[in-house]
Design a binder for these strands. Structure first.
Length: 261
DNA sequence: AGTACCACCTGACGGC
DNA sequence: TGCCGTCAGGTGGTAC
């Protein structure tokens, strides 16, 4: 599932369950999920320590330990966290488990194994290495406009490009463009300042709303595209949604009200 | 600097 | 029931 709002919800879940408890053991049932580290090194880094705070950069979550290391979590397409008594057998595809001294464990589960868990010394260095642009909820309008305009591809590919702006993926790029009535295949170059401003404002509003409802689809506004991600669904404008491959991904839009620039 | 295509993985779903 | 193709909210490499 995970795009920026999902990761932010994971992060808040993490904060409410897993901070300030001593880690007594780690298990790595799926070592292939580790990036540039080993089960042994991960254990050495966190056992005996506590998680003291977390932060998020785009779709990445980072967790600080009280001796100054940072754990990095990326969720691929299917990753999630579960805090559970005992820790074992709590989910179908546990990849990494952190056991705390209160008898609970935090499971990082990743069905399709497309996620990554690693260690870093510094979030800024990590973001540099990953070539991440500014976080979509952190960037100001001028920088947003500068980073998005002038790109040669589609506006959708620009929004999804983690080096331009970090955090937006397939679902939310479609949602943002639907809200702004701009066709996802529109050329990014043709966006004027007014259009960029509309996109920026929608991005902020949509991401924040999705976080507010804890990415529960049932609580997302009725007029969102997310309820219409099938070909031929009714758009309030009278049109019907279409599906097309844009920027390499299945994209949904309303050809009636989303203007192709 | 873009695109397209493939790869990494597993699971769900529809058609036959 | 089983098999098969297709699809899924991510990303990296490679060849144009």
């Amino acid at each position: 599932m995970p795009e920026l709002p999902d990761i932010e919800v994971f992060r808040r879940y993490f904060d409410s369950t897993s901070l300030n408890k001593t880690i007594v053991k780690t298990e790595v049932p799926e070592p292939s999920i580790l990036h540039d580290t080993t089960p042994q090194a991960l254990g050495r880094a966190v056992v005996g320590e506590k998680f003291t705070k977390s932060r998020r950069i785009g779709k990445h979550m980072l967790v600080h330990t009280d001796d100054g290391k940072w754990l990095t979590l990326h969720f691929g397409m299917t990753g999630f966290l579960k805090y559970i008594k005992g820790g074992g057998n709590g989910t179908d595809h546990p990849a990494v488990i952190f056991h705390f001294d209160n008898g609970y464990g935090l499971i990082y589960d990743c069905t399709r194994k497309l996620g990554e868990v690693g260690l870093t010394t510094d979030p800024e260095k990590f973001a540099d290495e990953k070539e991440l642009g500014p976080d979509a909820l952190d960037v100001d309008f001028d920088e947003f406009a500068e980073r998005l305009s002038g790109r040669r591809g589609s506006v959708k590919s620009a929004l999804m490009n983690q080096s331009a702006i970090a955090g937006i993926g397939n679902i939310y790029s479609d949602e943002i463009l639907y809200a702004t009535k701009i066709h996802p295949a529109s050329s990014a170059k043709r966006l004027d300042r007014e259009k960029l401003c509309r996109i920026y404002k929608s991005m902020d509003k949509i991401l924040k709303k999705a976080i507010e409802v804890r990415v529960d689809k049932g609580e997302m506004p009725d007029d969102w595209l997310i309820h219409r991600r099938k070909p031929g669904e009714k758009c309030p404008c009278g049109g019907e949604t279409e599906r097309a491959k844009i920027a390499g991904r299945s994209s949904y839009f309303c050809p009636e009200c989303q203007e192709k620039l």
